[in-house]
Design a protein around this nucleic acid. Structure first.
Length: 821
DNA sequence: GTTCTAGAAC
DNA sequence: GTTCTAGAAC
């Protein structure tokens, strides 16, 4: 099966690899041209290539990742080269193929990183495509998939990565692979990645940092050789052939390196960064007008590209991407809230005052959040409020890529105006009912019954100044055709005597309430940003195999998850919400069937599941905390605010739980400054017990802390000895949940809550799946038994970070010794 | 959270 | 063949 074991006639540099088969993993959104790429190469190549396509692998129908792996393995064993034709946009989706590829030869990535618009347009035109992603849903799915895109890096194990960002680059790559004869090989390294990539990455990273996205911490541990990763790296440092197995020992931590090397690409790459229209070839539509608009300070001229006309000229101005104005990330990927002016229509709020408030609140919000977009929408070109706001925003020099105005129908922003928004605000009435007129009627009408039902289960009414976030069920047309994931109802003050609850001319109160309304609205948007990101990881972490359709299903699944987590999305609780927060009975049953998108059933589940779908097994602590007197055999101490008990499955010689008794405080994510005293009490109680144990056994060392994402309902503090000598510690997750950043030290949590208002959670799955390392000496071990064997003897001092800020509780006799060692 | 178990890894 | 992991079910 070894095909290319002979020395080739190529230069020395190129003899580095390709001794066996090549696996080329295509990376790209639906419509990026993966299948075409494979077919084009296969047409002209002398080399035996086989395309493994997940969309057709199941007897012509969509199959599974496992099937693809099996098929690819067969191909490679036969000494042929293989294309993996599936989206592979996320690192996790690539990892198994990398492993397989390396066991038979070398692995390349060809990244078809074409503009989202082009991919969507191709998908939309498809009929009967293998991936069945044609028509209207294409835009939504492609955009969502691209939001999760993680460009491949050499550190994942690729020997060679080729980035193609336009058609000519794709053709060059076709030619490169197509002309590869049986004995040829290709040099290792990263090719075609423009310098702009680093800019884009920076922008994205800045955004992700804000909401804890897939930044590269996980990659750090995988870079296991060499402390320097020079930009000019040409040789694959990281593949298994170089001995960089992920479980290898790492001497020092190596910072993740963005491979910006552009390498030799063979084809010429014109620098066309930030100019999407130059890349789309035939697909590009006329973009005259908005793109060339000047953004000047004058009110009249301040027609930013977003405020393009809709209607007749829609086609010409769709997709006026903000990248054209120098944004660091594609606007396709920027979370966007579109909102109408609140209270200025029916409620007759003074426009001058309202515009001041809008601009102030927008400015405040944008100081807190980066890489987000706010768009004020009105139907009319002659809208006074839009022009006032534009003018004032301009005076304040608010970045027009982050805040702009838009003339159009808020329910058709994407389909008519080409403006992608994932969240829209509704100027609701206090009963949260459809009807009336204006924006409220339009949104309820466009969103269908689904919005009404979804709203009803969250709240029955809304106070002026408040907002209510409602995840939009996937059954809603606004979701499927416009890509709207959430509607935020907001109610402003009424200054119209013809309407209920008129404030008359009390603009002191009116302004206060209107400010509150925008604050609530933007906070609601902020909560959606955080929640969506969290859900992404939850969904990603469990992906095993997926077809393109399954990807879409996953998006729906995220929705269902969002729905279930409705509680934390309600910015201001009212009526039903209060019910949601109430304690559950001990017998209640909860469903975790997230894929059932039947509206009626979701409604029922939402009510049942409240904030999170805690399984029946996860209720034990909650039940004990609510009724400790009924569990006297389990608890070892009952105080006013906490109960103390031994962990039923201790992961160390001593392992206690200090459980909060407050109803509704389910986990650390719920903790806010008002809980600070409780946190201190929990810490002090835990500390007291640790010290008690230390007097009995001086060899112990304790750590007190919380799990970022606990499995058991009800806030609880772990007090755990650091020997981890327990038969109940059985798997990787057990280990990492106490030794990785997933475990948050109690004192750190207290400090964060007091300074930032809440704790920063490290609840990414990546913390629980990393390689196994000793918590003292940091040595790596292949499996749990070997790790446990090691830690039973390891006497190394604890890492310095643990010795600071009281994170470790040591017997008095050891305190100085540990710190000095 | 655990238990059970198929199948991967050794 | 045995050990170990990881996913499903509870």
């Amino acid at each position: 099966m070894d095909v290319d074991t002979q020395t080739t006639t190529k230069g020395k540099e190129e003899q580095v690899e390709e001794k066996k088969g090549i696996m080329v993993i295509l990376v790209g959104a639906p419509g990026s041209g993966k299948s075409t790429f494979c077919q084009d190469v296969m047409k002209i190549s002398n080399r035996p290539w086989v395309r493994v396509c997940q969309d057709t692998i199941g007897n012509g129908k969509a199959g599974t990742k496992v099937q693809c792996l099996a098929s690819a393995a067969t191909v490679l064993k036969e000494g042929k080269c293989v294309f993996i034709d599936r989206c592979n946009l996320e690192k996790e989706q690539r990892v198994d193929f990398l492993k397989l590829g390396h066991s038979h030869g070398t692995v390349h990535a060809v990244v078809l990183d074409l503009p989202a618009k082009l991919c969507i347009s191709r998908c939309a035109k498809r009929t009967g495509h293998e991936g069945n992603l044609q028509g209207g849903k294409a835009a939504m799915v492609v955009n969502r998939m691209l939001q999760k895109k993680e460009l491949p890096k050499l550190t994942e194990g690729f020997n060679r990565i080729t980035f193609c960002q336009n058609e000519s680059e794709v053709q060059a790559a076709v030619s490169t692979y197509g002309s590869l004869s049986l004995l040829d090989s290709l040099p290792s390294g990263v090719f075609g990645q423009k310098n702009s990539e680093s800019k884009v990455q920076l922008g994205i990273m800045k955004f992700l940092k804000k909401i804890d996205g897939p930044c590269s911490v996980a990659n750090i541990s995988q870079v296991s050789v060499g402390n320097k990763l020079p930009n000019e790296n040409k040789i694959a440092l990281h593949g298994p052939e170089s001995g960089a197995a992920s479980s290898g020992n790492v001497g020092g931590e190596v910072k993740d390196c963005e491979h910006t090397s552009s390498g030799n690409v063979g084809n010429e790459v014109t620098d066309c960064e930030y100019n999407l229209s130059s890349n789309v070839g035939n697909e590009a539509k006329s973009r005259e007008g908005p793109l060339s608009c000047n953004v000047s300070d004058g009110m009249k001229d301040f027609e930013c590209p977003l405020s393009c006309n809709v209607g007749k000229e829609v086609k010409d101005c769709e997709d006026i991407d903000m990248v054209s104005r120098g944004d660091t990330a594609s606007s396709d990927n920027v979370p966007t809230l579109a909102f109408p002016s609140i209270s200025t229509a029916d409620f007759k709020f003074n426009l001058e005052k309202a515009s001041d408030i809008i601009v102030d609140q927008v400015e405040l919000f944008l100081q807190k959040y980066h890489n987000v977009r706010l768009v004020l929408v009105d139907l009319s070109h002659s809208s006074k409020i839009l022009s006032l706001v534009r003018s004032k925003a301009s005076q304040k020099k608010i970045d027009t890529s982050k805040f702009s105005t838009f003339v159009g129908d808020i329910t058709r922003l994407y389909s008519q105006g080409g403006l992608r928004c994932n969240v829209i605000a509704n100027a609701a009435n206090w009963r949260l009912k459809p009807g009336g007129g204006g924006v409220n009627a339009a949104i309820y009408s466009a969103a269908g019954k689904a919005l009404e039902t979804a709203t009803k289960i969250r709240a029955g009414s809304l106070m002026p100044g408040k907002a209510l976030v409602v995840p939009l069920p996937s059954t809603s047309p606004l979701y499927s055709s416009e890509g709207i994931t959430h509607v935020i109802h907001v109610l402003g003050p009424n200054m119209n005597p013809m309407r209920p609850n008129c404030l008359g001319s009390d603009y002191t109160k009116g302004c206060r309430v209107l400010r509150e309304a925008y604050t609530s609205l933007f906070e609601g948007f902020g909560s959606v940003l955080g929640e969506q990101n969290k859900l992404n990881y939850e969904s990603n972490g469990k992906q095993v195999s997926e077809t393109k359709d399954q990807s879409e299903l996953n998006l729906m699944k995220q929705f269902a998850l969002t729905d279930q987590k409705g509680k934390r999305e309600c910015v201001n609780e009212i009526e039903m919400n209060k019910k949601c927060k109430g304690p559950q009975t001990e017998n209640e049953s909860e469903s975790t069937d997230l894929l059932d998108t039947n509206e009626g059933q979701i409604t029922k589940k939402r009510i049942e599941s409240m904030s999170k779908a805690w399984g029946a097994w996860a209720q034990a602590l909650y039940n004990i905390a609510m009724h400790p007197e009924k569990h006297k055999n389990d608890v070892i101490d009952i105080l006013d605010d906490v109960v103390v008990l031994h962990d039923l499955y201790p992961k160390a010689e001593k392992h206690l739980l200090v459980v909060a008794r407050a109803a509704g405080l389910e986990q650390l994510a719920d903790v806010r400054p008002e809980h600070l005293q409780l946190l201190r009490t929990m810490h002090n109680v835990g500390l007291k017990w640790a010290e008690k144990f230390l007097t009995e056994n001086e060899s112990l060392v304790f750590r007190l802390g919380y799990h970022s994402a606990p499995s058991m309902r009800q806030l609880h503090l772990h007090v755990i000895s650091q020997d981890f000598d327990s038969n109940h510690l059985k798997n990787k997750k057990h280990w990492h949940s106490f030794t990785s950043p997933f475990f948050l030290d109690s004192l750190d949590v207290i400090e964060e809550v007091s300074k930032q208002g809440k704790a920063t959670l490290n609840n990414d799955e990546k913390y629980l799946t990393k390689e196994l390392r000793c918590h003292r000496c940091r040595s790596a071990h292949p499996n749990i038994p070997r790790l446990k064997s090691h830690i039973s003897n390891c006497q190394s001092p604890f890492p310095a970070a643990l010795l600071q800020n009281g994170r470790l509780v040591l017997p008095p006799s050891k305190q100085c010794a540990e710190k000095s060692s």
